[in-house]
Amino acid sequence: MSDIKKFMFVNRKAPYGTIYALESLEVVLIAAAFEQDVSMAFLDDGVYQLKKGHATKGIEVKGFEKTYGALEDYDVTKLYVDQESLDARGLTADDMCVPVEVMSRAELGKKMDEQDVVLSF
């Protein structure tokens, strides 16, 4: 398929508790396999998806922190994190398990505006 569109995946929910984060990642990998221009945005509780040290043994759910580390292998390197969401949760870029670009809500809005397809999970 020759058409390349800009796909942004907007992640707003904590990694566990609901399945949205995990199933979002599955679409991200498929979109990357289709060689689309993929980016991911993390805001609200979605910033917890990238927090180092997922420990899921106690809730008997398969952890998927490693998948974020593998995104680079799929050429998914545009990971945008909302500054305000980090601040509100006492987190910084150093708490993230992969390299990210932290930006203001206004900058993130501009990025969203540039997209052809925005999928929100």
Binding site: M1, K5, E26, V117, L119
Partner: peptide, 17 residues
Amino acid sequence: GLGQLVEAGIQSDRLVT
């Protein structure tokens, strides 16, 4: 498969969630 969703995003003017 999920490829059908990505294809829908590529082929359509609007993907509404």
